[in-house]
Structure formats: C-alpha cells, structure tokens
Amino acid sequence: MKTLLAYILLLVALPTTIALALDPPQGTVLLTINGKITTTNTEGAAQFDVAMLQALPQKTIKAETPWTAGVTKFSGPLLRDVLQMVGANGDSLLMTAINEYQVKVPVTDANFFNCILAMSVDGEILTIRTKGPLWLIYPWDTFDALRTETYYSRSIWQLKAIEIQ
C-alpha cells in the first residue's frame, strides 16, 4: 500500500517536471548548454536548433561595432530567455566558439543587460562565414559604457556551447 501511494504521489509530481522539459531539437544543433541546468533534452545537456531559438521572442540591437561598418542591426533571442529555458542556476557562463575560443561571461550580464544571441545581421541569417550562427551581442546602443575591451572580448561569435558554472 505504501508503495502504491508513493507511486501515485510520483505520478502527480511528474507533470511539473514534464512541463519544464525541453523538446529535443529537430534540425541541426546550433547550441549546446550544460552544467548547472535543470532542464535538458539530451544526456546532461540542452540542445537547440534554429527553430527552437527562433521560437523565442526576437530582440533587435542597432549598434556600431568594431567588427562591422556603420550601424548594424542584430536580431536574436535574449540570452536571458535561453538560460531560463534550461533552468540555468550558475554564476558564470563558460562560452565556447567553433574555433575553441573560450570566454567567461557572468550571468549578471545576461540578467542586467539585454544581451542577445544574434542570429541575423541586417536581416540576413548568420552563417559561420558571417560569424554565425550565434553571436553574443551587447546593447551598445543603450549603454555606451559597454564599449570597453572587457565587453568586446565577451562578444563571442560562432558560439556553439555554454557551460553554466
């Protein structure tokens, strides 16, 4: 009897866990998040394809950057939203690019600034050749103070993985 009751309770508790679950990616995996996360869709990690990221609310940042000519329009989901989806609960994000470039970004950047994972520039979907498919963009249009080497160095392109630490 006791065992039966425990199963019932487990069944009742399950839907909340299921609701937080992330659908597995249908297309090519663009981003893999692991580490201190509560929601996964593969073994110990959460993987995202283009569709999943595009399904999130898209934000735009229009700003000049050292790497582009003139005002450039970057669009993509908020880093915060992506972290929320995986239930990230760490302090910093170890980001890794395709060329194995790594940089540590404090979670507070994501919470405080509306940083986006740009997926398109001036309306064109980013590819690896154009520093895509994901490029972390800070809102330089809103905060001039972000125009320092610290933030420039955190603006990782060709992002492929985030480890929540």
Binding site: T65, P66, W67, T68, A69, I98, N99, T127, I128, R129, T130, K131, W157, Q158
Partner: peptide
C-alpha cells in the same frame, strides 16, 4: 567544412570595421 568557414569568416572580416 565548418573550420573552413571559420577560416573564411576570419579572412573575410580582416578589413571590416574599425579594426579592419
């Protein structure tokens, strides 16, 4: 191919922006 694209993007953006 991805690494070729990375190399591509590097060379392509060498003369882009302020740094370029």
């Amino acid at each position: 191919n991805q690494l070729f694209d990375v190399l591509w993007s590097r060379i392509e953006s060498m003369d882009k922006g302020q740094l370029g």
